[in-house]
Design a protein around this nucleic acid. Sequence first.
RNA 1: UCCUCGGUAGCUCAAUGGUAGAGCAAUCGGCUGUUAACCGAUUGGUUGGGGGUUCAAGUCCCUCCCGAGGAGCCA
Length: 468
Amino acid sequence: MKRVTVQQALTGRVEVGETLEIQGWLRTRRDSKAGLSFLALHDGSCFDAIQGVVQNDLPNYETDVMKLTSACSLRIRGELVESQGKGQSVEIQVQELEVIGWVDDPETYPMSPKRHTMEHLREHAHLRPRTNIGGAVTRVRHTLAQAAHRFFHENGFYWIHTPIITASDAEGAGEMFRVSTLDLANLPRTESGEVDFSQDFFGREAHLTVSGQLNVECYCSALSKVYTFGPTFRAENSNTSRHLAEFWMIEPEIAFADLSDNADLAEEFLKYLFRSLLDERPDDMAFFAKWVDKTCVDRLETFIDASFERMEYTEAVRILEKKSKKAKFEFPVSYGVDLQSEHERYLTEKLVGRPVVVVNYPKDIKAFYMRLNDDGETVAAMDVLAPGIGEIIGGSQREERLEVLDARIAAMGLDPTDYGWYRDLRRYGTVPHSGFGLGFERTIQYCTGIENIRDVIPFPRTPRNADF
RNA sequence: UCCUCGGUAGCUCAAUGGUAGAGCAAUCGGCUGUUAACCGAUUGGUUGGGGGUUCAAGUCCCUCCCGAGGAGCCA
């Protein structure tokens, strides 16, 4: 008797005629008064459920089988046989069935065997992985994460575990969540009446990280090719289908590399991810193509075959200005202002029809650490824009020249003493280096066509919502 | 945070200011191998909370809460 997963049973690990044992959850039960019932059993190991056929002479047919409802957990033993029906090649002729867990009050079980809205699934995030779409998203997410690590490993990158808690108070990538053990009802005060963080756990203010970039630059300046892959936190009050308060970001950083190398890396990396996904999860991708977004598989294949579209910011603005009347933009476009969502969408969706890299933005709309170009006006920044999502990657060549970095820090009104260790990288053997941040959830959205980012992470954290 | 649209049965949605309905799910019965099975019946409601207008409010007004789409911020 082999105990196997549904995936193993369906893919030849068990020969027809062998007996096997499978454990899982019931998706549906269909009865035929020919004296048999059909059970669809899933265990998450693959998209498909396996069909168990139960004859009514089973000792517990009336007492157990006829009472089964969706989501009951079961252990079945039986023979793997070729199916007499359509829709599956093999099925299990059940010889023994054991109910492990019943469903309490089936009428109110939230994942009843019918179609549900994404909002409903989200409100039951603890049960959502049992659904077709919940399972498919989970496997796709895993596959993309594994592919990311594999890509970097195979290309000589080292994975750096950058800190979740940071006392760097000037990363400048958005609002931060405070980390503190102070008693909120009884805050220690300094003589001038301000909160005395010297009495806090770290002896100073601390927050959850908004990016591992500054930390990973340190390791880049020693191990040459590195990356982080971990959770990041933004306390922005963003209520959109593209933002989470807690999300996962992949941030590679490469030494002796300019912006063009950076864009090459982004392109090669994304293609590797998409190729892996199509190769490894055809079952789940077929489901998304059928029920969620008919174009998702084609989109990935096109991306893999095509070269990245690259465009200068100046060029992008020129095109947008030319098209602004026809496209009826709500906001005007001109050199020196950041592109609005509608402009980004126009570029990637209408003009190019696939992801596009916009490079060399005006320095005033970008971060202090981005490398100043020779024109003195722009910085070596890049944004990868994807149809339906907008910015999926943000990156840049970093400023490696200490005096230029200091001038930028000063010009932006930042305090150089906050950047002591970061400046040291430029003092001791500085090198040109580049990197980017890829929003992991946005990548999953792009691959699956799922519209709301809250549906591609197990337990989404958003303003006013940290349930589960 | 701003704009727009929503909140009615377990779920998805109907309902001129005048008796709250349907489909699915669930339960029961029928059906000779089903595939989101099918056919019949039954059960199922404090219409998001609070306040107001009215003879009468799911429906109109005020307010709060929650959700979605878009914007800003960004990945």
